[in-house]
């Protein structure tokens, strides 16, 4: 498993997709000057832009690397030479996942340092009324990483089912989009205002979807980091537990499906 993990990491670092996406990190250089456009919240804006850029890069990485990782092994027939080694399929899938997760962690560490530099520059140029709470920034980064690691697990599950890259990539993107609005739709459907307009069937379907689709909104601590608002510790613990259980389910299902998969 460790072996597969290291190979996964090496593979990503030598991958052109990764190199292309990481070119976006150059944008960190422009954050201080872009943030100075703000009228009253330069530091806040630099935090916003940094966290958003990290979020965006992690999203691209999780979708494209998570979605193509298994698919590429099968498509390029690496799977014959790898799965015939005395490895269990479960260690292969877990190794892949852990490799990707570790990679996400490394990326967000590096990008996090870059954003700290950008924010530090902004806040020295235009000192903020409310100083940046670095602890909250760290929390926001950690939870953003967890969010995209969970998305990697979604991509992995989809690619154990699919024979092409289409489902993993677009399925993951759709999951991501749906995860952002599921809370809103759920609340709307169950609001008294919607009581007449929504049929009971639809209401139930939405409820089922709400519990099925990963709820990623809870992982978003940007507001807390940007405006220095203390997050709710109980909520953080629940979110972390949610991450663990949901990821465990996704990985379990992935292994189950991949065990049955035939390398024709």
């Amino acid at each position: 498993m460790l072996n597969i993990m290291m190979v996964t990491l090496k593979g990503i670092f030598r991958d052109r997709v990764f190199q292309g996406i990481m070119a976006l990190a150059v944008l960190f250089l422009f954050i201080p000057s872009a943030a100075s456009l703000s009228m009253r919240q330069v530091t806040e804006l630099s935090v916003t832009l940094s966290l958003s850029l990290i979020s965006f890069i992690l999203l691209l990485l999780s979708v494209f690397l998570g979605g193509t990782s298994l698919w590429r092994d099968i498509e390029r027939r690496y799977s014959y030479s790898v799965l015939s080694l005395p490895l269990r399929r479960s260690s292969y899938v877990l190794g892949r996942f852990l490799g990707l997760a570790l990679f996400m962690l490394l990326t967000s560490t590096v990008l996090g340092l870059a954003s700290c530099a950008a924010i530090a520059v902004s806040s020295t140029l235009y000192p903020a009324e409310r100083p940046v709470v670095w602890g909250f920034l760290l929390l926001a980064l950690v939870y953003a990483t967890l969010k995209y690691v969970l998305l990697v697990a979604v991509a992995l599950l989809l690619s154990t089912v699919s024979t092409s890259f289409f489902l993993p990539i677009f399925g993951t993107i759709c999951t991501y989009l749906a995860s952002g609005i599921s809370q809103q739709v759920y609340e709307y459907v169950h609001s008294p205002a919607a009581a007449q307009a929504v049929s009971p069937m639809l209401k139930q379907a939405v409820t089922v979807a709400y519990y099925l689709i990963p709820n990623l909104a809870g992982f978003d601590l940007k507001l807390n980091a940007i405006y220095g608002v203390a997050p709710n510790p109980g909520g953080l613990a629940l979110t972390a537990a949610y991450f663990l259980t949901y990821t465990a389910i996704l990985l379990g299902a992935s292994i189950l499906v991949f065990n049955r998969r035939e390398m024709k």
Partner: peptide, 21 residues
């Protein structure tokens, strides 16, 4: 906008302000 901006609501908000500005 809220749905489209998923977890980038803060940037979307800032972008609107800049558009006005």
């Amino acid at each position: 906008l809220k749905s489209l901006s998923v977890d980038q609501k803060e940037v979307a908000g800032a972008a609107l302000v800049f558009k006005v500005l």
